[in-house]
Structures are given as C-alpha cells and as structure tokens.
Design a protein around this nucleic acid. Structure first.
Lengths: 193, 193
DNA sequence: AATTTAGCGGAGGGATGCCTCCGGTTGCAA
DNA sequence: TTGCAACCGGAGGCATCCCTCCGCTAAATT
C-alpha cells in the first residue's frame, strides 16, 4: 500500500485533552458538512455553531481557513488511497474501473476543496502523491496488459473523471452513462460493439 | 437557425437615453470580467466601480444579482447558438466536433454562471432551449450517419464536455488530449487505432 | 480533594457587502 | 435656450463575517 504514514503525521498534531479532542472532531465533521453544502466560502462562525463550540475554539484548532480545509481533506484522501488494496485482486481493467468508481465518490464532494488547496500547499502535494501512489500502478498495469490506450496519462484520467463528476446529475442513470462513454474512450483496443 | 428572436427580447428592455445605455453596457462588460475572475460572488460594488458608475446606477439597471447574471449570460448563449451555422457545411462528425469545440470555449468561462442560474430561471430555460436547438440536430444527424453511438443523448455529451473543461489545465495540450479520449468514447463505430 | 493549567466561549472591533434613498445633474424635446 | 423628466452617484443603515482577547471552566494530576 502507499506511504500513508507520512500523511498520517499531519493528522497526528491533534489536541490531547479529552474535551479538546471531542471539539476537534466535531469541528472537522461540521466543516465537512458545511463545505459540502455551502462550498469553500462557508462561514466559519456557522461551522463553530454547528459543531456546538465557540468561535474561539475553532480558531485555536485551525488558525486559518486553509488548515481547516486540509484537515477535512486529508482523511478523505487516505480512505481513497486505502481502497486501492480492496480491488487489487481483480483483472487490470476491472481493477482500474472499480478504483475509479471509488474516486468518483471522492471527487464528487471534494472537488471544490481540492481546487482551493491546489495552489502552494504542502499538504495538497502530499495528498496528490498519495492518490498517485495508489492509482498509477493500476493504470500502468492495465496499459501493459494492453487494455488501456497507451498515450493516456494517469493525470488525464483523473481529470476526465473528476470533470464529469463535478456536475450534479438529475437522473441517477445519466452519470453512469456518461462515465461509460468516457471509459470506452479510455479503453484500448476499443470494445467492438 | 434557431429561434434567437425570443431570447433577443430579453435584451431589448434596455434603457433609452444615451448616457443610460452607455452605463448599461459598461456594467454588463464589467460584470462579465468580474464574474470570470472572482466567480458568481463577485462584489456588486466592485463591478460598479469597475464600470465607472455609482452603485445606485447598478441597482437601477439590475435590481437583483440574478438579473445581472442573466444579462451577461444571454449574449454568450446567442453567440454559441449562431456558431452552429458556421459548421453546417462539414460532414456530420466533423461538424459536431467543431461545434463542441466552440462549446468548450463557452463552457470554460460560463459554467459557474450557468450553475447559478440553473434553478428556476425563465431566462436559463430559454438559453438551454437555444443551445439544444443549435446542437441537437447536429447530434442526431451524426447518429443517423452512424458515426456517433446511438444510445448517447445530447445532454450526455454536453455534460461530458462541460465537466472536462471545468477544470483549468496547467499544460495546454492536456485538455485536448483528455477531450480526444472522451470524443473517442462517443464515436461509433470506434476508430480502430 | 486540591491544584494546576490547557482549553473554552463569546463579546467586540474592524472590514466588507447589500441595498435604499434623495439631492444634484444632464440629455433631450420644444 | 429653456424646462423638465430621466438619470446619476454615493452616503448611510443594516447585516454578516473575520479574527483577537481575556476571564472563566473543567480535565488531568498528585
């Protein structure tokens, strides 16, 4: 599995006292919800209110908005990274598709967050490396097996997928249909219909 | 060509006096820039400042933020709609791809705006109809010619494209590469590499 | 139980944004 | 040129948000 230890360090600097840790967790959970609902500009005071703590407590744990982003972001990435092991037993193409489906769930909610962190953030770089470490071997494996077009890069695929998922689809089946089109474009040699 | 007359009515309710019209145009231009730079939450006072008019003038022309959105949005849509005629002389697949490339330019900047207007806006519905009127015939034509997979809908394609373009690509060539993958998935029967 | 001290919460100052209102200005018709 | 209606601009009231600061609370330790 990927080097999750490094990323874990970022989560390790959590408070020690019992009540402090409760508050820390409540804040991250509240922030996760708030960002999902109202985007990255969600009010910090609203987040503190939702977590049932004072605004001062929020600022003590997360001196800047960015650090709150990062805390929310890191464990999402870790979950995604770990899921690579779950699909390792499948054939190359199926494994890649299965993992990309997990990635869909991740990207659907965390896109705005990732975009915000994308610019000069050490944490974001590490998260990015973590995702690559999880997915890139599967991609290369599928390419060596001759089932994925060779000129596509792993980064191409991530962008393809995350872009599609960024929108909200009114009909549930449509997203899968659109994803199927995109994955057919990725596949190689093309499935002859 | 599509029924652009209907949409034009929405732009017709412009002010009449010379100075008023200058201000109206300056406001729309300033808003277009501001929304492109700062997203839909751009400050209205900043827009007025940029247009060189008072905040009062902005509110007289556009009593709500939404009406400013709509004014900016409508002529973008009209330009896109008109461009369907420019590609009509090409073979079905090429025409579709050429028009989708125009759509890319549109979607890259107007996604946030469209998303904002998507919920219960008469103007948005008309714009949507306008885009469909321009693109759907080309899509159907390509499907009847057997060069586009038959189960894909026009809406599928728009989402596929706009999703991909939503992100900003650091390397210039990557977006085209990703789009090529997606379009290959759309193509039917698949191009044998 | 007593002591220590990390941690808590929210009042409040400063900044910004939204929108209204009205005195002054100016394009336009006669 | 003159008169007037349409139009302009921005001051100001209200709301919200960000962030700091400090007196109080309660968890951990002995």
């Amino acid at each position: 599995m990927a080097s999750t230890g490094e990323l874990g360090e970022y989560l390790a600097r959590r408070p020690k006292r019992a009540d402090a840790q409760r508050n820390y967790d409540a804040l991250v959970a509240a922030a996760r919800e708030a960002f999902a609902e109202a985007g990255v500009n969600a009010s910090l005071e609203e987040i503190a209110r939702r977590a049932g703590v004072g605004i001062g407590t929020l600022y003590r744990n997360f001196p800047s908005r960015r650090e709150l982003f990062e805390a929310v972001y890191v464990d999402e990435v870790q979950a995604l990274s770990h899921s690579a092991a779950d699909v390792a037993h499948l054939p190359p193409w199926d494994a890649l598709v299965a993992w990309l489906n997990r990635f869909v769930a991740y990207a659907a909610t965390k896109r705005a967050l990732a975009e915000e962190l994308a610019h000069d953030s050490e944490v974001f770089r590490r998260c990015r490396a973590e995702i690559y470490a999880a997915g890139q071997p599967m991609m290369r494996c599928a390419q060596e097996a001759g089932v994925v077009r060779p000129e596509a890069t792993f980064d191409d695929v991530l962008r393809l997928i995350s872009g599609i998922v960024a929108f909200q689809f009114p009909e549930p089946g449509q997203r899968d249909r659109v994803l199927a089109i995109a994955l057919d474009g990725l596949r190689y040699p093309p499935a002859l219909a």
